[in-house]
Simulated assay, not measured.
Amino acid sequence: MKNTPIYAAIATILLSTTALAQTATTPASPTPPAATTPMAPGATMGQSGQAFIQQQRADQHLASSLIGMSVHGAADETLGEINDLLLDRNGMVSAAVIGVGGFLGVGEKDVAVPFQAVEVTRNADGKNRLVLRKTKDELKAAPEFAKYESAPATTGSVAKPATTPPATAR
């Protein structure tokens, strides 16, 4: 749980990226390019040509506000809380990791569900509400989500040496 602020910051940065493209024109060209990619609403262009987002839109949610939130079932029962968000290599949230069962974190297990299955709505008072159309029993029966302790290798594989570490002197 001590790494939660770090993960929340990373998720927030990755969730707020916007892909922009520019079409270069030459001075000799009398007409503008036929297709240009519009900037996202609320974005401005910096000196380096990169966009900066100035304000969160109504349909966007900060990862830091989702992590730790209670997830409710269709019958309004509390199913668990968001412990983490799983991001893919493109920066998209692919799953919500929900802590289910247990009491005060003891006996709790993490279950990952596709993020698209979690309905994220914003109440009139501006607070987010999370609904998952599953039951407590379905989540308790779901397989536990296994985390990598370190990032898996992305380019090739490196075999570990077959030697054992030397014994320490006592």
Rank of each mutant, 00 (worst) to 15 (best):
K2R: 15
N3Q: 13
N3Y: 09
T4L: 07
P5K: 09
I6V: 14
I6L: 15
Y7H: 12
A8D: 03
A9S: 14
A11L: 03
A11W: 01
A11M: 04
L15I: 07
L15F: 03
L15S: 12
S16L: 13
S16Y: 06
T17W: 08
T18S: 15
A19Y: 12
A19E: 13
A21Q: 15
A21M: 11
Q22N: 14
T23D: 10
A24Y: 12
A24Q: 15
T25H: 09
T25D: 13
T25Y: 11
T26A: 13
P27Y: 08
P30Q: 09
P30V: 07
P30F: 06
A35P: 03
A35R: 09
A35N: 13
T36V: 15
T37S: 14
T37R: 11
G42I: 06
A43G: 06
A43T: 13
A43D: 11
T44I: 15
M45K: 13
G46L: 12
G46M: 10
S48I: 07
S48F: 08
G49M: 08
A51G: 13
F52D: 12
I53P: 01
Q55I: 07
Q55M: 12
Q55S: 14
Q55C: 06
Q56V: 12
Q56D: 08
Q60G: 06
S64A: 14
S65T: 10
L66T: 00
G68S: 08
M69W: 01
M69Y: 01
V71W: 00
V71I: 05
H72G: 00
H72F: 00
G73L: 00
G73S: 07
A74R: 08
A74N: 10
A74K: 11
A75D: 15
T78N: 02
L79W: 01
L79H: 01
G80P: 00
I82N: 01
L85H: 01
L85Y: 02
L85G: 02
L87V: 06
D88N: 14
A96Q: 03
V97I: 12
V97C: 00
I98L: 05
G99L: 00
F103S: 11
F103C: 04
L104F: 12
V106T: 12
G107L: 04
G107N: 06
E108M: 12
E108N: 05
K109W: 04
V113D: 00
P114R: 02
F115Y: 10
F115C: 01
F115V: 02
Q116P: 03
Q116R: 10
A117N: 10
R122W: 04
R122N: 05
R122P: 03
K127D: 06
N128F: 01
L130Y: 02
R133G: 02
K134L: 01
K136P: 01
D137Q: 14
E138I: 02
L139D: 00
L139F: 03
K140Q: 11
A141I: 07
A141H: 06
A142E: 02
P143S: 10
K147F: 11
Y148W: 15
Y148P: 05
E149K: 09
E149L: 11
A153I: 08
G156I: 07
G156A: 06
V158L: 12
V158P: 02
V158G: 07
A159P: 04
K160H: 08
K160D: 09
P161Q: 09
A162H: 08
T163M: 11
T163V: 13
T163G: 09
T163W: 07
P165N: 11
P165D: 08
P165K: 09
P165E: 09
T168D: 12
A169N: 13
A169I: 11
